[in-house]
Design a protein around this nucleic acid. Structure first.
Lengths: 360, 360
DNA sequence: AACGTTCCTGCAAACGTTTGTAGGATCGTT
DNA sequence: AACGATCCTACAAACGTTTGCAGGAACGTT
């Protein structure tokens, strides 16, 4: 019948009016029959007939027209600092999955670490009529992107970062950072470590601040004091080079710690670099721990002891929370997800002091 | 003046008519003045006045209305099997960056490895009026998602996978898999290896097939024969467990190879597992190489010798190619990106045969 | 001075849907 | 049998933009 070339010169997608003509009803009736929320307004047999015709023709509502008329786009914007970042990628994946189930789609934008750029993206996405925003970029306070959403009264959910906005709390899904650090400190303390250093992240990010607070609190609970037992160095950023630098400083201290609790897996990788450069073996000479349990950190040598954060679940929950906010109009509070300890080869009881020097 | 609560009850965004009223012109003139493509139709002083007013009011064109009327949405859909996959995440990041520069936005969907689901997503995204599609999920041939795009005459660019569609070639951006395997084989051969095994990926994926072909070709070029010198095992999937299984089979062969060239870093990780389980040291007893240079494969022990593929650049180029196709209407051919060899600790000259047995 | 161009601007018609309103059946009640 | 209530369907008006078309002003040419 037809040659091997694509047979049909791609017919334009069927419209509401064509389904209506085929089913012998007015096109507004078709609209109602196909929309679950208005289906009850049309007689059952008619609705069924319409649905059958629509299915046969392969009708799909035109999103642009629908968005224009109804004001709802079934689109959600997401801002992440680094799409390929091993922390944020699973968050995106989880959010995308949850949104798909709810017939929404995900519009991703990557402003990096630039808050002004993030705010610009909010404006852009708002003009695309997104129904809500997922922000994984928010700084601890006075974030322009958050402000941009609030000003447009765009529903917004923060991910991985908390953010106080005046007295009102912006809904968020965050890991329990304090509990996470408590797990790590308890683990190290249980192994016998007493001098435990902390590689903190930037204090401008809630994860940086909260994990540091969690560390100090947990140390106090173990009877260790922030003064002598718990030296702290703050990294400039949550990445490997910054971790290396901060760890170098920590290792150079006169009372070098026997364990390093890092605020982040990437910082821990930097700490590996620093330790190896200093001729220290992990975990024989010094224990190192991370935070996040990024993909593949089980593959490095030695495997990194860390705190697992369910990033995928965070994405899912944030999407669910946002959809809820969009529907209800109200914003629920902050969801805190419990972390779990993952022990691998990078932590061990402290060795005899000075052993590493004898090696050299 | 105003309390700490958000001062302005969020005024609706300004429309074309409001800008027009403020500037004292008809709103169609505003539309023309703000659109670079039609700006030349309006007198220069008027255009400037309009632009000033628009900027002052913070006007942004409503994407839904624009898409409805013009048929162009400035939206591009992307299908990837696994958003968080270390290979595809950088691709997405690159594509998003390139699209953003061209004032387009990225709509991501993750059908996993299910081709039917991918085709369904194409339909969904088409109804959202995306201007084109980026497919990183395509199988080697007869991919339903590709067919769905072609049938709707949606511009499409394949990423990381090539795909012949009848006689016509679907535009794609792919790594030079043959050249990559040639780099590896030349490296191993240069080290003195003669019996080199290949852990191939599924032949249904172009990367699986092409890298195998590249391997066989490169071996022949080095004077090694596919029969005796180059045993091949095909893994069920591109993941670590499948790599372990296939490597087990390869190691069990009577003439066990002294080097393993894997089609993928994940397969190589599986090969590590298999080698360690067999009591073989890497690289003393056996060399292992990967493909892709995923993040963190430099941190495992020993560091993985592999072929670096510029995934970020692939995403960028694919987006650029797609935008070009959208504008011109025509589809350019296939872009092939050159790989580079990254030598780390997992490859070395072959040791004396049997050394590993004496160890046990 | 009349006429043909060129240049600009206003007018109005789409694009395809959702949704308020009105009117015609149908039914049950008195 | 007449009336009100209920149920369903059709009609029409948006939503905000892009774009073909027409008309008027300004200009240069014969």
């Amino acid at each position: 019948m037809s040659p091997s070339a694509p047979p049909n010169p791609p017919r334009p997608a069927p419209k509401l009016r064509q389904v209506a003509a085929e089913a012998g009803v007015h096109f507004s009736t078709v609209s109602r029959a196909l929309n679950p929320a208005t289906r009850h307004l049309v007689a059952a047999p008619v609705a069924e007939r319409v649905q059958a015709v629509a299915a046969r023709l392969g009708y799909r509502v035109d999103a642009a027209a629908s968005a224009l008329r109804s004001g709802r786009s079934r689109l959600v914007g997401a801002l992440v600092p680094g799409i390929a970042n091993p922390v944020f990628a699973p968050i995106l994946a989880g959010a995308a999955a949850a949104l798909t189930e709810a017939d929404h789609a995900l519009l991703v934008a990557d402003p990096g670490d630039d808050p002004a750029r993030a705010a610009a993206f909010v404006a852009e996405l708002a003009s695309r009529r997104v129904d809500g925003m997922l922000l994984a970029t928010a700084a601890r306070e006075h974030d322009p992107a958050v402000a941009a959403c609030l000003q447009r009264s765009l529903p917004v959910v923060l991910i991985n970062r908390a953010c106080a906005r005046g007295t009102a709390v912006v809904p968020a899904v965050v890991p329990d950072d304090v509990a996470g650090m408590r797990l790590i400190v308890a683990h190290l303390s249980g192994l016998g470590h007493r001098r435990i250093g902390h590689l903190a992240g930037p204090a401008t990010l809630s994860t940086g601040l909260l994990r540091r607070q969690g560390f100090e609190q947990a140390m106090a609970e173990c009877g260790l004091h922030a003064d002598g037992d718990a030296p702290i160095e703050v990294a400039e950023a949550f990445d490997r080079p910054a971790g290396r630098l901060a760890a170098d400083r920590l290792l150079a201290r006169p009372d070098r710690p026997t364990a390093l609790a890092c605020a982040n897996d990437l910082l821990a990788l930097g700490a590996y670099d620093a330790c190896y450069a200093a001729g220290l073996r992990i975990p024989e000479d010094i224990s190192v721990s991370g935070h996040n349990d990024m993909p593949l950190v089980d593959m490095i040598t030695p495997g990194l002891t860390t705190v697992r954060i369910p990033h995928d679940a965070m994405g899912r929950q944030a999407a669910a929370l946002l959809l809820e906010t969009i529907r209800r109009g109200a914003s629920s509070g902050i969801t805190v997800l419990p972390p779990t300890l993952v022990v691998r080869g990078s932590t061990a009881p402290p060795g005899r002091r000075g052993a590493s020097h004898e090696r050299l």
